[in-house]
Design a protein around this nucleic acid. Sequence first.
DNA 1: TATTGTCGTGTGACCGGTCACGCAACAGCG
DNA 2: CGCTGTTGCGTGACCGGTCACACGACAATA
Lengths: 341, 341
Amino acid sequence: MSDTETPDATGKAPSIRDVARLAGVSYQTVSRVINNSPQLRPETAAKVRSAIAELKFVPNQAARALATNRSRLIGVLGPRMTTHGTSAMVQAIESVARAAGYRLTLTNLATSAADDVRASIDHLMQQSVEGLIAVAPQTRVVPILDELKLPVPVQIVASTGTSSSHNDQTAGARAAVRHLIELGHSRILHIAGPRDWVEADHRMRGYLAEMDANDLTPRPPVLGDWTAQFGFEAGLELLRTEDATAVFAGNDHMALGFMHAVRAIGRSVPEDISVVGFDDVPESAHLWPPLTTVRQDFAGIGARAITDLLSRLGESSDAVGPSEPDHLRLIVRSSTAPPSR
Amino acid sequence: MSDTETPDATGKAPSIRDVARLAGVSYQTVSRVINNSPQLRPETAAKVRSAIAELKFVPNQAARALATNRSRLIGVLGPRMTTHGTSAMVQAIESVARAAGYRLTLTNLATSAADDVRASIDHLMQQSVEGLIAVAPQTRVVPILDELKLPVPVQIVASTGTSSSHNDQTAGARAAVRHLIELGHSRILHIAGPRDWVEADHRMRGYLAEMDANDLTPRPPVLGDWTAQFGFEAGLELLRTEDATAVFAGNDHMALGFMHAVRAIGRSVPEDISVVGFDDVPESAHLWPPLTTVRQDFAGIGARAITDLLSRLGESSDAVGPSEPDHLRLIVRSSTAPPSR
DNA sequence: TATTGTCGTGTGACCGGTCACGCAACAGCG
DNA sequence: CGCTGTTGCGTGACCGGTCACACGACAATA
């Protein structure tokens, strides 16, 4: 009478054989039930389902992966530095992947050294991922991915677009610079992101291209590290050595740091100098002054990237349609104004 | 002569049997090599290793998991809303886990509805994770975790401490409020985080406790959603209806939004009203004015949580030692000053 | 020289699923 | 009434590792 409440108290998880025994069918029938095979009598399926519920059976994914040679696992190669943008993208990726029946395994780059990158990729490949998605990778990561010739599809998602839509990458940066030019600025500086980030590169190119298109001579961009701290330090330096009326920063954080520097030397934004950022992180609207910036739909970018990857995996992409590229938009706030001199 | 360059071009990944054949040993010997068995003649091991290299053999984790009944997989239950803090913690968790030979599988909560939480947990359990780590969970998630009686260890990591060190949870909040009191403030408001976040709850309790300890009557905290936008809106409202000289916000973002509201009505921080935040996100030092806040070592918290979890899994925690709880520190900047009236 | 123990390696079964097939029962058809 | 086709389900082998055990070679011991 001191029987355990559950039918088997072996401590081991029940297998399809256990379920089959309880339901009075063969293990293959159980397999059919959990795979929604159509060739099943409804009553049989019901019997099996109740046995599954009773035993709290949950299919062993490892066994399934082994037998089918499909892991339904997607590897995410995270960036070295996480930001609002990358987290938002990863989150979107996860939710789309899960809805499609895929799981996510995550790894972050410790550094961007080649060995380190290879180790991270190995780590993912060992889990026999079916696809790889590199979030905001540094530029040096990309050739490594190419060179490795991975046996699975690789999707690169830079925050200015996926690898499949390279055309509009610099558009946002150009819009930002054009805005400054239209306000009447001509001495415009650029604080860029790190040399080896895809996004940084494209935004810098956008700056150079737009300056060029307006017959303005760009100043050599300062290369930063995306942080507010750098924006601050670079700002102190630039304000001492350069005579500019506007700055286009590679992201909002550096713009924020730069604005701090402007105040620190007793000048003000936008009266003395205009500032525009990039990303439109949720805080940018509430900075002082509210920051003019370029908005990105991070979640949308992430979702598109994973959708593309899934469709490359032969997954019927549920009517997501082709990528619509217009996810960059200039948001004008009060950190920009016509030059006073 | 048109042979492929690799020994086998079957398109399938090589198994230990293939390696064994090439090395002229048994598959068991290969298994011993990849598991670093000591009982091996060095020459044999070398032979096998070169065969492994030649075939680019990589052990199939699914098969291993199936045979050993150990997945070496840790499930991460991410929060509904990702912030700087949670990303930093996840990143730290990943790096520690990887170093210990564990892999991470990630899922994010879409909402905090019970069904949704259960679905997310199921999703992780289906992958037969060996442990679960819930990052910054809402309070309602915790009882669900308890009630489910998961067969694996669960580690809850709130950004104010892991579940194992509950004692200092409110300390940071109390320090923040005490700082305001010591400056001479008595009419101090609190903009709290969402009702169902563990952190929000503890910070609120810290506020109430410290007010109480100084015989000050706390105002009922406003419950926000962590965003700058909320801080802004709540600020507009509070500044209209309340007569306070200081505000303690549940996080830096809401503090930032509040400061925006102060400026929006033509008053200033800290002259008219002092503001203190919580978290010390990297941008806080560069806000205007630089924000007084409570610093948290997110990476350290994350690392500690995963270390604890690993040790509960019987992993020899490499001399990490017991958790040192002093990771909260008040950072005084210029958003706080004595009251002017 | 026979016995015992250790070292290094091989053999068969097994983990929990899936796949390809086999097969009984029954229906439709000439 | 026999033939064929379909439906519904069961059997054996297999995925790629690991585990328990067996076994031969050789050294130490009696």
